[in-house]
């Protein structure tokens, strides 16, 4: 099938097998290897990206389901050499060690903050439940997300990444990982 997907602002048109997962399309066809695969049961969340502004586990979305959509990956967050406030907060709070879960963790954190701009500790932990980290024990990730929330308050810094929400397409309507 021929699909057109805009990834991190660039439009790509490709023929894909119907069974191809979005994450494999991103990694193997488009070379967007910043998004990684950590499991095969949709538990780890390492592959989380934004599909039309909502977080999805890209191992649970078929590439063909992303036809006509905008995908944002961790590679598309920094603007003009400036890290996204959530990326900056992960660095500032030592919220990563090996960094393998980090792309998914950052994408899910941004989604979480879009829903709840000022989450308490418990809300952050619940919001990240679908993303596993083996290195940090999560404490500094929680700290980073709350720190980012502080910096992303209106007027506090660069505007957070927002892809226009069409309202017609939610994460759950294309399957997987939208929690």
């Amino acid at each position: 099938m021929r699909i057109t997907v805009t990834v991190d602002g660039t439009s790509y048109t490709d023929d894909v097998e119907p069974r191809t997962l979005l994450v494999h399309h991103l990694r193997e066809r488009l070379g967007k290897v910043g998004t990684v695969v950590g499991c095969d049961t949709s538990n780890c969340g390492a592959c989380t990206v934004h599909l039309d502004g909502h977080s999805v586990k890209s191992c649970s979305v078929l590439a063909v389901q992303a036809d006509g959509s905008e995908v944002t990956t961790v590679e598309g967050l920094a603007r003009d050499g400036q890290l996204h406030p959530v990326q900056q907060a992960f660095h500032d709070n030592h919220a990563l060690q090996c960094g393998f879960c980090t792309p998914g963790m950052i994408m899910q954190s941004i989604d979480l903050l879009a829903d709840n701009p000022d989450p308490d500790e418990h809300a952050v932990r619940e919001g990240l439940e679908g993303n596993l980290c083996r290195c940090t024990g999560y404490q500094n990730i929680v700290k980073a997300v709350r720190d980012a929330a502080h910096h992303m308050r209106p007027g506090a810094g660069p505007e957070a990444e927002r892809v226009a929400d069409t309202g017609s397409r939610t994460a759950s309507s294309v399957g997987g990982g939208g929690e």
Binding site: R27, K32, V33, V36, V74, E75, A78, H91, D92, G99
Partner: peptide, 19 residues
């Protein structure tokens, strides 16, 4: 000190073997 390693890791510019 904040880590030197982080920049590539938070931006997805990593060299995992599978990449």
């Amino acid at each position: 000190r904040l880590r030197k390693e982080d920049e590539r890791l938070v931006t997805g510019r990593t060299r995992w073997t599978d990449n």
